[in-house]
Design a protein around this nucleic acid. Sequence first.
DNA 1: AGATCAATGCAACTTTATTGCATTTTACAA
DNA 2: TTGTAAAATGCAATAAAGTTGCATTGATCT
Lengths: 145, 145
Amino acid sequence: MCIHCDYRQLLKDGGVSPTLNRLRVLEIIGSNNFPLPAADIHETLDRSAPINRVTVYRILDLLVEKQIVARIATGGRAAYYGMAPNAQHQAHPHFYCTQCGRMDCLTPETVDIDFHAFENTFPGRIDKVEMRLDGICRNCLKKKT
Amino acid sequence: MCIHCDYRQLLKDGGVSPTLNRLRVLEIIGSNNFPLPAADIHETLDRSAPINRVTVYRILDLLVEKQIVARIATGGRAAYYGMAPNAQHQAHPHFYCTQCGRMDCLTPETVDIDFHAFENTFPGRIDKVEMRLDGICRNCLKKKT
DNA sequence: AGATCAATGCAACTTTATTGCATTTTACAA
DNA sequence: TTGTAAAATGCAATAAAGTTGCATTGATCT
């Protein structure tokens, strides 16, 4: 997603030691401009240098917990992973193609979300806001014809 | 969700024959004022009169396809089911408690979503917009102390 | 009543993710 | 430098959620 993010620094800031595998996972996520499912991340990494599936899951859990990475739910079964909102990157909605399973990032201005009034009266704690549009992407629309 | 919805009619309008089991599934969903996971729906129905897990899944798939019921993704693993937006019910955001797994409906005015400008320029097809707040609900906050 | 199709049930399987425990690597004090 | 503890990783087994194939039951229409 970004050439401005210092992954090593992001890990340190989150209080996790920057092991090789963590850096690798974070780089894949960060260098991709759309969120990826765990299986894709594992496959990509495993091709360049073997890494266990479970290790990837554990690293993802850790990075999500430290809010370095965001876990994004889809209409489908697998969770997708992208960079968590930070100084460089605003939170933004996603588009999920129910046909090919690809998830794209939309620009933050796509939608105008104003829930601050609500936030102040809500009796629970809000950690995260997720917004997703589901549909059929341009490519899949073309193929359909 | 509603005493105004005629479930039998909703099924007919969607072009599916109103079998007993379909009515039962739809009534559970409709009479609940928050979305439920498939397992809960099955458990509840199965207690009053035995029904197969797979039958419930199949009915849910059918109702979602016919847009009578909405499948709502959570931060967790299971999908939740609620009434699809219709004449009686506007689309609305949900709040998902990451602690107890309960999902609540929020009022449609909670957030101000304006994506019509975007919709007109987007090259794909948008079928659905889903918005979800994750956090800890009031009850779980209390328990924590 | 017989034929036909839709709906349901049951068992096996798939996908995605998690757990427990063994092994390896790293950090760091002695 | 070596020993030791803690952290990280790997591997196998298991779990949760959902799906598929095929048999059976039930509904519908002559």
